[in-house]
């Protein structure tokens, strides 16, 4: 237990761990100011081409809409903030040479990697929770509660009291998809002795796989269900009227399989690795 706490402590002694929180804080504040002062424009942006066919009544610019806008706009950027920290967890110690001291102590490499995965998981949970608290908390405080308007393939309007559990599940799913990105970067972090290489290669893989996930070529369509990036926006399923839990379960399983695979690969690499730096 002590080693797990030490790893978490080490994560938060690094300056880069706070960059993600700071970035979320400033972007959410900026978005809040924009929604607060330009509410009508924001609603126009959300409803886009629907205004000719529909007439919207009531206070639709509220905390729920704000939290949903934040999620939609920021979600693609969160992996960047996550891998900055998780991609450095192992390679950072190769690079600084601290592993020479740590691994010459009577501690198993299995424990080291597992505690680093736990620390990385806690970081991911905290950063997603921070995003949730900032967007929902500030949204409710400054814009109040109200019905949630969601435009996807259909227009969905949820009662105010029907939204919070959807957000909770969406953030939980979001944690899982971010954990997959974190696990990938932690695996690459065990492979490379250099943090920058680990971080950039993680991002490159996420970008390439995201591209493949959206690219409609027959060959790729077959592999698409097996790519974790296909489910990065899976949280949006919780804002459908009838939620397809069976599909969500499949997505959860695919993401979990990826996380476990990356963890086992990290273990395999780390147990065999010579510490030369």
């Amino acid at each position: 237990m002590r080693l797990y706490l030490i790893e978490i402590y080490k994560v938060f002694t690094r300056r880069r761990s706070y960059i993600g929180f700071a970035a979320i804080f400033f972007v959410v504040i900026l978005l809040l100011l924009a929604v607060n002062y330009e509410g009508k424009a924001v609603l126009d942006f959300v409803t886009k081409n629907l205004k000719d066919a529909f007439s919207f009544q009531g206070n639709l610019v509220n905390g729920n809409l704000f939290a949903h806008i934040v999620l939609r706009s920021l979600w693609v950027h969160i992996p960047l903030l996550v891998v900055m920290v998780t991609g450095d967890l192992v390679s950072g110690e190769y690079e600084s040479g601290t592993f020479r001291m740590v691994l010459s102590r009577p501690v198993s490499r299995f424990t080291i990697i597992t505690s680093k995965f736990v620390a990385g998981t806690i970081y991911v949970v905290l950063i997603v929770l921070f995003l949730a608290v900032m967007s929902l908390g500030l949204g409710y405080i400054f814009l109040g509660n109200g019905d949630l308007l969601v435009t996807k393939d259909t227009i969905n309007i949820f009662n105010a009291d029907d939204t919070l559990w959807r957000f909770a599940l969406a953030y939980l799913f979001g944690i899982l998809s971010m954990l997959t990105v974190a696990a990938l970067s932690m695996f690459l972090s065990t492979v490379f002795d250099n943090s920058i290489t680990a971080i950039l290669s993680s991002l490159a893989i996420v970008i390439v796989l995201t591209f493949l996930s959206t690219f409609s070529v027959p060959v790729i369509v077959y592999i698409r269900p097996f790519l974790f990036t296909t489910y990065m926006s899976g949280w949006q399923a919780f804002f459908d009227f009838s939620i397809n839990y069976q599909q969500i379960l499949i997505e959860v399983i695919v993401l979990l399989v990826h996380i476990i695979t990356f963890y086992l690969l990290s273990l395999f690499v780390f147990l065999k690795k010579d510490i030369l730096t």
């Binding site: 690094r14 601290t98 020479r100 001291m101 740590v102 102590r105 009577p106």
Partner: peptide, 24 residues
């Protein structure tokens, strides 16, 4: 081993505390 490397952003005493955890 080679030149000693520590967790640079924490104090010497905290470094000893961290490293002692690895020694159990």
């Amino acid at each position: 081993v080679e030149k000693p490397s520590f967790y640079e952003r924490i104090s010497a005493i905290k470094n000893l505390e961290v490293l002692s955890a690895y020694s159990g």
